[in-house]
Each structure stands twice: as C-alpha cells, then as structure tokens.
Design a binder for these strands. Structure first.
Lengths: 355, 355
DNA sequence: AAATTATACGCAATCGCTTGCATAATATTA
DNA sequence: TAATATTATGCAAGCGATTGCGTATAATTT
C-alpha cells in the first residue's frame, strides 16, 4: 500500500476570522460605519462604502453568528421537527422533504437545526424543545401528521413562526403545505374504475387523526360516489408494511369479491401485495393494488406499483419559503393564512393492471 | 363538521425568558454570582447558591444560546454533513445513523445542524460551508464514503473537531467510526461456502475509493482465499439498485457457472436479484444473493434477503460521543486517534438458500 | 454671505453571559 | 487578640455585532 501524502497541519488552527473592528481600523472608519455598509444601510458615502467593502473583501470578513444573534434577536436558523417513528422504514417518505428543505435553506442563507420528537417528548410542553427553549431558531417546520395538535398549538401560541408540513390543524390559521391528497387519490381511483372496470374497491387508510389519511380517503370516496360504487374503508393505526398486510388480510376476508385496493401510501400498498401473494391471489390479475408517495422501492416491486407521485422535495422547499416569509415579515402586520398545495402526479405502472 | 376549539392566543407572544440579571436582582446578588452558581463553579456559599438556584427555578431561567456562545466561543451545536446523492434511494441506509446522532445529541445537550453537500459544493473550499464560516458549530460529523478527502482535510486542518462516519482517511489520524465491514462480509461469504457449498461466488463492489467497498471486498477475498476459491470482483461506480442490476448482468455473462453473489449492500443485492429474475434464473435455487446493511426492505423482498445487519443507529451515537469528547477535551493536550468499529450481525433469511 | 437643511459619519449603549481580578467577610493560626 | 490565610462575592471588561442620537461637514436655499 502506498502512503498517501496529505498536507496535514492540524494544530495550526485557522486564524480567528476578522471582526468589524479589524475592518474599521484598516479602513479608517468607525465600527458602526462598517456595520452599516455591510448591511446595505443608507447614509454612507459611496467613497467610504467602496473602501470598506474592499477591506472587508480582503479580510474575508464573515459576521459572527452569535454576536449578530445577540444584537438582533434573530438567529437565521430554522428548526425541523420530525416525528420519531418506531419503525425506521417510516422515515423513507419524508427523507425527500428534507432534501428540499435543506436546499432552500442554503439558498436563502438560513441554517437547519433538526430534531426528532417521540411520544415521550410530545408529552412534555412543546416549549421545552431544546432548540426553542434556548432560542436557537427563528421558526419551526413541523413535519408529518403524527405531531400532536397540542404540541403544535403550544408552539404557535408562543408566537414563534411555524409552518406545518404534510399536516394541518383544523380551526386554526396555522400555515401549512400539503399534497393534493384528495385529487391524487381521486385520480388513481378513477383510473381503477374507468380503465379497469373495477367495481369492488377497498381503501386502506391510516389513522383518522391524520389529515393526509382523511383527505386521501375523501378522494377515494368521491371517485367511488361518482361511479355509484359502494366504499369499503379500512382504518389502520399506522401505515407500515406490516399493518398494510394485516389490513389487507382482513379486507380479503370481509369482502370476498374484492378486486382492487387503493392504499393510503406505498408502504401499505406493498404490505397489501404481500398479503395477496401470501394467500395466492395474483396482483394485478386478481387484485389490483395502488399506492401513494412513489417511494424509491415502489418501482422495483414486482409488479411495479402504480401510485401517486408526491413531490416531497418541492413541499419541503415551499415550507421553507413560507416560514422565512413569516419570520421576516413584520410581526405586527396581519398576514393571511396560507395553505399551499403541491400537485401530485399519477404514475401508472403494472400493479393496477396496465402493462 | 364540528368546530374544534383550541385555545388560540397568537400574538400574546411569550414573555421574553428571564436573564441572569433578573435572577440577580430577585436574589439580591450580582450577575456574576448567578452565573457561577448556574455553571456549578466553586467559591459560592451554599446558602447563596441555594437561594440563586431557587430563584432560577422559579423564573424558569434558560440561558440564552447566542449570548453564551459569544462569551465562550462555543456553540453547543454540532454539524452533520451528508453527501447529496443524485439518486434519492441512496439516502435510505444513512437515515438510521441520523436517528442515533439526533438522540445522542439530545442526551448530551447538543444541537444538530444538518446540511447536504453535493459535488458542486465539494469543489469549493470546505471552510466555505456556511455553518463553518459563520462559526455556528463546535465540530462536524462527516458522513459517508462520498465526502471528498480534500474536503475532509481542509476541515481537519482548520482545527475544527471532526469525526468521520462510515469513512476513513488513510494516512491521517482523523477519528472515525466504521462498521466491521470486513468481518461482516467475511462471515456471510463463509456462510455461502460452508453451509451451501458454493464454489463460484462473485462480489459486486462499490467504488474502490470508498473504504466500505474496499473493506467489504477484503472480507470477501479472505473468505474465498480460505477456501481456495477464485475471486470474481466487479466494480461499480455507485451502489444503487440500477447499477446492481447492470453489474449482475455482466457477471452472469462473464461467469457462466456463477452460483452465488455477495453484494456490497442491499440496494445492489436487490438489483442483482432483479437481474436474475429478468433472465429467468431463480434466487436462491440457481443463484444465491446476499447483501449488507439490512435496510427495511430487504426483509420484504421475495425471497427475503440474507444480509449483514449494520447498526447504523449505534454508529451515529458513537460518532456523536467521540466528537463531543474531542470538542470538550483540552485542545493543547494530545489525544490518541480513535477508530471505532461497530460490530455487525449476520441475518440469515432465504436468498442465500436457507429456509 | 448667512441661515437652513441634508448628508455622512462617530459615540456609546446594548444584547446576555463569562471571567480575571479586587475586595469584603470570615475562619484560622500564632 | 492581632496577623494571616480562606472563602465568598462584586466590579467591570470583554465577546462581536447593531442602532439611536448627536454633530461636523457639505449642499441648498434666501
């Protein structure tokens, strides 16, 4: 093995980055002038301004976050609160949100503090969240339907800007960004009905306390109602593959002539397909199955899953934009509540019967 | 729909949390005394101490992070740098690390700043990372094998505490925490040889620049050498399902009598199985396939994947512990480099031929 | 040219907490 | 009991920014 020569110089710690004072001295002006120049404030002569800017450039000045925060009461950090699923695979769908969130933060010069909250943590007061208590964030994105209403309310009432991701709170005007759940499921259900002439279609739904479940169920219902078909709804306590399997088993027993299933998400859909396979019913020949989310694995399944693509990355981006809007807006000035919807797209593959 | 009544009081913004001064006045002592009490420093009478503590409790005092940082030059934030995969599904395996990282941070009173760096960002100097430039973190966890050596070196040389997760840099003494890659793959390969009498076994490896790939390949090699079998190594530019499929196709053509494959990770293994299915070779009857990671879906695959379980959560936890150790240790005092290995576990399912 | 209004800039306080040093209070020793 | 060593506390100067207010210059108006 050949030794690799890196230019190691640990210990020669990087020089402390320069301060406003350094710039001020070198440019022969006062600290406050420098501050004003660097913050694009008016009232500074163009000549001075140029000189200061030049020196700042030369010294590679970067403002110290702590000092700035202390003076301005703003951190330029935002917090992302995710639910800590007991089952790790549940994280999959939301990981894409994070990508969008991260990118948009970077783009807008914000930093992202993340944290997971479990059932345990949600029993305590939300203001006990470390990042909130210690005033480390200017605002929060609360992601997913599993964050408890009381938790949300506590944060919202504290005055901290908050936006909900993939969730909403009835009776409040908390901003949120959501998938077009209803339309998405409506379309895929309609597809089953119109293209494949299914008559007996079940819906495997998540908890009724989750907005996305309710809305997706609504989409299912309206598609069925439109075709005068009878709905069959199955509620599950969560939306994992395992739960999907169980629900599907129940469904198959309770509805002998079942020919199609729309699942509240892809994980459940996969579970449903496994259940079918387990009792020897082929998908999609005997039972059609469709999902929601379009997670990576849905394409690789056999048969490939027909599903509704959720643009998680865009959702994340929108949430960040809105949150920063709230943060930077004048808190005294009333602003309209915003509910953003991000469109979905039908992804036709084979599990619906298409080929 | 029934209206839901929440106790909304937006605008009644939470009272600014109390400061040292508030406590000092109420307790009739000086600010510095309060500070000393709250930081458990010696030299304060037990009586005063008790009184201060009581008042602090009563006022629900929480120190302001910005002020504290400004004074101490420490943030109690650590940064997590992840590689921004082009293919979203690549995120899956590392998502578990994050859980451990987050938990351990919370436990130790630190906060987690996360960011994704893509190829683009890695071309710039690592010190340009926003969270580093603005001194928002006390240390960094650099996760995954795709972070460029030059990037790592730049950070390390700056004196910022750094620990590598699932990666290592030859010729440096940068701390890292790693899976027991070699042992893990050695075992699973041995299993194929000893329990299933395979003689022609290929290894589908990731880029040779990735430590985990090299080490896993080494495990494969030593198991084969031990049994005097001839190795067949296939290198891939990345480790997605798609790449795995392609690599497997090549392998099947180049080695007609191939009977088993060990994949550098589960995604690749899934790709390999798909390739087999595509040309009608059954797994495990005609070709055995095993993986590494034990991601959620590996159990659900048909056949269920035999693999090596990687304890990602523990890795993350260890990384945090070590990083904080570095952060809080005296920077002048030399400390030994640490390379932590987290053991793996063989998960026998059906894709190897067991039942 | 004197008076008035703008324009540029500096002074100094402030944000909330830490910490070296001085000093008052108490305990120890001779 | 006086002298000395301890212990407990306060003062005040930072840390690195922002910002209200005052003032010397320059520009404008009579």
């Amino acid at each position: 093995m050949q030794a690799i020569a890196y230019n190691l110089q640990k210990g020669i710690t990087v020089a402390n980055s320069s301060t406003l004072r350094d710039i001020a001295e070198k440019a022969g002006v006062s600290v406050s002038t420098v501050s004003r120049v660097l913050n694009d404030q008016p009232g500074i002569g163009s000549k001075t301004r140029a000189r200061v800017l030049a020196v700042a450039q030369e010294l590679q000045f970067v403002p110290n976050a702590a000092a700035r925060s202390l003076a301005t009461k703003r951190t330029r950090n935002i917090g992302l609160v995710n639910y800590k699923w007991a089952v790790p695979s549940q994280f999959v769908a939301s990981s894409l949100d994070s990508v969008g969130i991260d990118e948009e933060c970077q783009r807008l010069g914000y930093h992202l503090l993340t944290t997971l909250v479990g059932e345990q943590a949600m029993k305590r007061n939300a203001l006990q969240l470390p990042m909130v208590r210690e005033e480390r964030v200017d605002g929060l994105i609360l992601a997913g339907p599993a964050i408890k209403p009381s938790f949300i309310i506590e944060l919202y009432n504290s005055g901290l800007p908050v936006v909900l991701l993939d969730n909403r709170l009835r009776g409040t005007d908390i901003d949120c960004v959501l998938h077009e759940n209803e339309t998405g499921v409506y379309r895929v259900t309609q597809h089953l009905i119109q293209e494949h002439q299914h008559q007996v279609i079940a819906f495997l739904s998540g908890p009724d306390t989750w907005l996305s479940s309710r809305e997706r169920a609504a989409g299912y219902h309206s598609a069925l109602a439109e075709a005068s078909l009878e709905p069959h709804l199955f509620l599950m306590p969560d939306t994992t593959v395992e739960t999907g399997m169980k629900a599907m088993q129940t469904a198959l027993i309770k509805i002998p002539d079942l020919t199609a299933v729309v699942a509240v998400n892809d994980a459940v859909a996969v579970g449903a397909m496994r259940a079918c396979k387990a009792i020897g019913r082929s998908v999609p020949e005997q039972i059609a199955v469709v999902g929601f989310d379009n997670i990576g694995w849905s394409e690789l399944h056999d048969p490939p899953l027909t599903t509704v693509h959720a643009f998680g990355e865009d959702m994340g981006r929108q949430a960040v934009r809105r949150l920063i809007e709230l943060i930077e807006s004048d808190p005294n000035q009333e602003h309209a509540r915003l509910r953003l919807r991000v469109a979905t797209r039908l992804i036709i593959r084979r599990s619906c019967g298409c080929d």
